[in-house]
């Protein structure tokens, strides 16, 4: 079986659209300690951007800032030209969706109902809603699970349900916080293929990833965080050099280019 390998050609330059997300000198401090320091970047439609970096580098905090969960201490985050804090929650939910890391629930909704909740920001259109939910469930390999009680799901299954809910929200901006952390190999690949598909539809996607090889394989651009700062921003194959990874993570790696695969692979040594 030949699997389509995502190309890392520069597709973004073909659609020189306005930046849909703009972080400008964003700083977030708690008790005087800066978790995110003076980070600036623009994000365009049709772009998969991976946020990578060691534990505590500020990736999840950055995602919260982008999502509008917390206001920045200094600087600004703009979504579609408006500061994220100035958006009303309803309209904002029609343009950006967020998948968080923790997806446990205490209430026994069915998988079907849990995915359906992603349609909340939109006016009810029973047929379309049902079609979107069914598609997301099939895509997440959750068919046959529709009636399952979500409190009984494994971590990976819960993450797939959460991703399906994010997808049916059908927003042009998507923020994903470590969506693949609990997933097995097959589902990691299929989730990130879905992400590529969203990108193909013109969405801008920010995804926090721990696995640098997944970032190399699936993202158009990486933002490398270290100690709350943005230390590198560029195409993954160019940004993720042996020396940068070693400096940021404190772990030496070898970069190899296997034959027949069009992106390099990092191996810890």
């Amino acid at each position: 079986m030949v699997r389509e390998v995502p190309e890392s050609t520069d597709q973004t330059s073909q659609t020189p659209a306005e930046a849909v997300v703009r972080a400008h000198e964003v700083t977030f401090a708690v008790d005087g300690r800066e978790l995110v320091s003076e980070v600036s970047f623009d994000l365009h439609g049709g772009e998969v951007v991976a946020l990578v970096g060691p534990n505590g580098a500020g990736k999840s905090t950055m995602l919260s800032l982008l999502a509008g969960d917390v206001p920045p201490s200094r600087g600004s985050v703009e979504i579609a030209g408006t500061e994220v804090g100035k958006w009303k929650s309803g309209p904002l939910a029609r343009i950006r969706s967020v998948m968080l890391q923790h997806n446990s629930s205490n209430f026994a909704f069915s998988v079907d109902e849990a995915v359906q909740m992603g349609r909340l920001p939109w006016d009810v259109d029973a047929d379309r809603d049902a079609a979107l939910v069914a598609e997301a469930i099939a895509d997440g390999d959750l068919r046959g699970f529709e009636a399952r009680d979500i409190t009984t799901l494994s971590g990976g299954e819960a993450a797939r349900v959460s991703f399906a809910r994010t997808k049916v929200q059908t927003t042009p901006i998507v923020f994903l916080d470590e969506p693949t952390a609990a997933l097995d190999l097959k589902h990691q690949e299929s989730l990130l293929r879905s992400v590529r598909q969203l990108r193909g539809d013109g969405a801008a996607i920010v995804v926090v990833l721990h696995d640098l090889n997944l970032a190399l394989r699936y993202s158009d651009r990486v933002l490398v965080f270290g100690g709350g700062r943005l230390v590198a921003d560029g195409k993954p194959a160019q940004a993720l050099t042996e020396s940068l990874v070693e400096v940021v993570y404190g772990q030496s790696v070898r970069r190899v280019q296997p034959e027949g695969i069009d992106h390099p692979i990092l191996i810890p040594v």
Partner: peptide, 18 residues
């Protein structure tokens, strides 16, 4: 109330004015 069972942040992300 349905959406709040997902958690406050999730509810906010789904457009609820939490």
């Amino acid at each position: 109330l349905d959406v709040l069972t997902l958690g406050e942040r999730e509810a906010q992300h789904l457009g609820l004015n939490v």
